[in-house]
């Protein structure tokens, strides 16, 4: 894993597809790119088979742009809509069996630490609410209790979108879906609370209608996961097919849901704040001078 793995063998560049040549020449590898520069560099994500106007795709696109060191990142995913886009990116993608993505990421993260020592190699798990809160629930929670150092991102579309609209643990109470005609009988699972209890160093909720906030949340989560402990991001990424949202109203729905039940929240442990302030220069987390000193 280094910058060399994206480059051509000398002499073979002219035979490569245009997209690949653009990625090597104008991609974000080894540079600092931000969301505000989008549209002027070749993105790591390529064309993908996800539905038109999917908010999950928008979140995945922003998340991949926001990775602090894309050349040193591995993504792990599992069955679900998300892997259709995450696997179409120019960074390595590991496909776990359904539900074992956090187990796979634990081994991967430990192995990379043994092989590369202090050089940062980031492991980022991106999976849906079904893979993380229902079928992979045990592995997800156990990886947090073991304090495995990697980032877990839940793409919460509140439904099993890929298989026709069954209710998941993250569906809201009373929600009627195609394969849940009587409405869901119990409350949405409190994964944020469980992440805090299990000892995550950083927990955040985010909605993709604020790209710069998505960028800042992903950057913090990945940087904290390098040394402090597990980090968890829960992102609302609506399913416009199963919830019958017209594609041009997807962002309006994001806005409504953000105001209603998915407000931006961020939780950091003191150790995580100190880590960000001392190593990465986050000024807002520097210890504040005592009140008596500032008055004098």
């Amino acid at each position: 894993m280094s910058l060399d793995y994206v480059k051509f063998t000398p002499g073979f560049g002219k035979f490569m597809p245009k997209e690949y040549r653009d990625m090597v020449e104008a991609g974000p590898f080894g540079k600092k790119t931000t969301v505000s520069q989008v549209g002027t560099f070749k993105e790591i994500l390529e064309e993908h088979p996800m539905c038109a106007g999917c908010a999950m795709t928008l979140f995945i696109r922003l998340a991949i742009i926001a990775f602090p060191n894309p050349e040193d990142t591995i993504t792990v995913g599992t069955a679900g809509c998300g892997r259709l886009a995450i696997s179409q990116a120019a960074i390595p993608f590991v496909y776990g069996n359904y539900g074992d993505q956090n187990g796979v990421a634990s081994g991967l993260s430990r192995g990379l630490r043994l092989r590369f020592g202090d050089r940062p190699k980031d492991v980022v798990v991106m999976a849906g609410d079904g893979g993380m809160a229902d079928i992979g629930f045990a592995q997800t929670l156990h990886s947090w209790f073991r304090k495995e150092k990697f980032t877990t991102i839940m793409l919460d579309n509140e439904v099993y979108g890929n298989t026709g609209g069954q209710e998941s643990g993250m569906t809201n109470k009373g929600q009627v879906l195609k394969m849940a005609p009587l409405g869901k009988k119990f409350e949405k699972m409190d994964m944020l609370g469980m992440a805090k209890v299990a000892g995550c160093a950083y927990v955040a909720t985010v909605v993709p209608n604020n790209p710069r906030r998505v960028e800042s949340v992903i950057k913090k989560a990945v940087l904290i996961a390098r040394e402090v402990g597990p980090t968890y991001i829960q992102a609302y990424t609506s399913c416009n097919i199963e919830y019958a949202i017209p594609t041009d109203q997807v962002l309006q729905d994001c806005k409504d849901v953000e105001n209603d039940r998915y407000k931006f929240t961020e939780y950091l442990t003191d150790e995580a704040k100190e880590h960000l302030a001392t190593l990465y220069g986050y000024k807002e987390y520097l210890p504040k001078p005592a009140a008596a000193l500032t008055k004098g």
């Binding site: 505000s36 002027t40 390529e46 064309e47 993908h48 908010a55 928008l58 790209p211």
Partner: peptide
């Protein structure tokens, strides 16, 4: 304003 480049769900579709 460049907002559309940030909100498109497809990569490298709205360019500047």
């Amino acid at each position: 304003c460049k907002l559309c480049t940030q909100y498109c769900p497809e990569a490298n579709t709205i360019q500047y």
